[in-house]
């Protein structure tokens, strides 16, 4: 096992541990910490696979943005009263079976065909050249989508205030 494989194994383990925590805990701060661990694990995986730009974007957008948003929403709707706030869960066997089935399916199909990647170091300006070159349409569409999302959020929140 090369150093790279080891690093990949570590980051993937961190990811899975974070995901497991997110699923299993019902305690709000622990859920957030677990989700943060998972997202940082994803960033680390990107870094190991040679794309620092993706890693940093992941941290910027997810850990600094989305995760704070999640925690913020949780704090707003589930405030620390007398008892510890919990995130409601209804564990049941059916869901576990389905999830397990998904896992078996994915691992069985992808596992054999997907060898562990050798890192390809990507310079950020190459990514920029692709984004503004061949995939310019996609890039612009993402911009439109973001604008639409922004407006949607505004409309949703303003509509909520009216009632």
């Amino acid at each position: 096992m090369s150093a790279n494989d080891l690093a990949l194994a570590v980051t993937v383990t961190v990811m899975v541990a974070g995901a497991a925590g997110t699923v299993l805990t019902s305690d709000v701060p622990r859920l957030v910490i677990s989700l943060g661990t998972f997202l940082l694990g994803v960033a680390a995986a990107f870094l190991v696979m040679g794309s620092p730009l993706l890693a940093v974007s992941q941290v910027f957008v997810y850990v600094g943005g989305v995760l704070v948003l999640v925690l913020f929403a949780l704090m707003m709707v589930r405030r620390s009263g007398d008892e510890k706030p919990k995130v409601a869960t209804r564990h049941d066997l059916g869901a576990a079976v389905i999830a397990l089935g998904v896992f078996v399916l994915l691992a069985a199909v992808l596992g054999p065909v997907a060898a562990d990647p050798t890192p390809v170091v990507t310079a950020p300006n190459e990514v920029g050249a692709i984004l503004l070159g061949p995939s310019l349409v996609a890039f612009e569409l993402v911009g439109v989508l973001l604008l639409a999302a922004l407006l949607a959020v505004l409309v949703i929140v303003k509509g909520g205030e009216d009632s």
Partner: peptide, 9 residues
């Protein structure tokens, strides 16, 4: 911006 998370926690 990760620090925000620490502050919130």
């Amino acid at each position: 911006s990760i620090g925000v998370l620490g502050i919130l926690l």
